[in-house]
Design a protein around this nucleic acid. Structure first.
Lengths: 197, 197
DNA sequence: GTCTATATCCTGATAGAC
DNA sequence: GTCTATCAGGATATAGAC
């Protein structure tokens, strides 16, 4: 539950940390299924066996790469669930997720855009439940379909857009602001009131 | 340039058509890199060699699966480029793409969400150029970063959201309407006016 | 911690019979 | 159009030396 002040996956480091950084770059560029352990080893200048010293299986590497983002998301969700007003819950989720995305643009894209990651997480982790918690915080109780569509577009759109080449040359501060603006525009719309005849 | 009245990839058919439908389902579920020719063959109840009778390489299958959507997108782009007003251009692109997504929910997700597809298309096709044309139609000339961010979120978000399980039980008509509403909300925002002091 | 070497399986792809 | 049989290469993963 420590506050994260550094990027979730550091660019430099020793041993495992360099491995995870190299793996993330490859996952973001070629996809998890399109990345072999040989490629990761080559990126590090070592052999496959050296990679296997740090992690027993490829799934373990995927989990280790993606885990920091999941832990941050869990903190964000818990923080948001403690808020009393719906508006504060939505705001906490939006600010938290967008900050996470901007701070490390490729990690979130891999986490929620890669089908292989989803498959691994559905077996080894509890990510689907966390994903549902975050969605519930965004759309609230008894959401109408329009809100569900908007939140779905937002969550997947933010991830892919943050890593896309078209926003690569936009600074962190500015990107954060634009993403927050997009999120608020998307989510703030008139619900069809069931009480109106 | 024939108008498409049927789904881009038919669910049933004979020979190649059943092959493409089975391949699309697998691509959408496991990703292109995570789908082997063996899986496609198994889904059809045949052997790999039978698959190779229809298409020489795996890339050819990917191209054939994704090609109907690309052709539709090209028609949409050309149609939009013939409009004179910016508003009409944006509207034509939005209505066309959303209709394409809703009519065949997994195809667009595979086309623009799968890194392996992007890799194949960058080699064998001219999709990057088409993608740029559509983006240019959405954001207009000299777009500000906020508009670029919004359009990026929209294009990737629509694709993934259309295939997601959360919107699976929403009917075509309703989904189309909600997606259009989201798109208009996202793109319609005040540009920072450079003329204002 | 990293290496070489190896084991095993699966991949995309081909040839030729029916 | 589909089959069996086969190929070379690459995948994950392990064993053991340094």
């Amino acid at each position: 539950m420590a506050t994260q002040l550094e990027p979730a996956v550091p660019r430099e480091g020793t041993g495992r940390k360099k491995l995870l950084a190299a793996a993330l770059d490859l996952f973001a560029e070629r996809g998890v299924s399109g990345t072999s352990l040989q490629m990761i080893a080559d990126a590090l200048g070592v052999t496959k066996a050296a990679v296997y010293y740090h992690y027993k299986t490829k799934d373990d590497i995927v989990l280790a790469v993606v885990n920091p983002a999941i832990e941050e998301l869990a903190v964000i969700a818990s923080e948001a669930e403690r808020k009393r007003s719906r508006a504060a819950q939505v705001e906490t989720v939006l600010v938290g997720i967008i900050d996470l995305i901007v701070r490390n643009r490729s990690l979130y894209a891999v986490l929620q855009g890669d089908l292989a990651v989803a498959h691994v997480l559905s077996e080894h982790g509890a990510f689907p439940e966390l994903s549902n918690r975050i969605m519930a915080l965004l759309v609230g109780p008894d959401p109408d379909p329009g809100t569900i569509v908007a939140a779905s577009i937002l969550l997947s759109g933010l991830g892919e857009a943050g890593f896309g080449p078209r926003v690569a040359d936009i600074g962190d501060e500015e990107l954060r602001g634009h993403m927050l603006g997009c999120a608020r525009r998307l989510l703030r719309h008139r619900r069809p009131s069931a009480a109106t005849p």
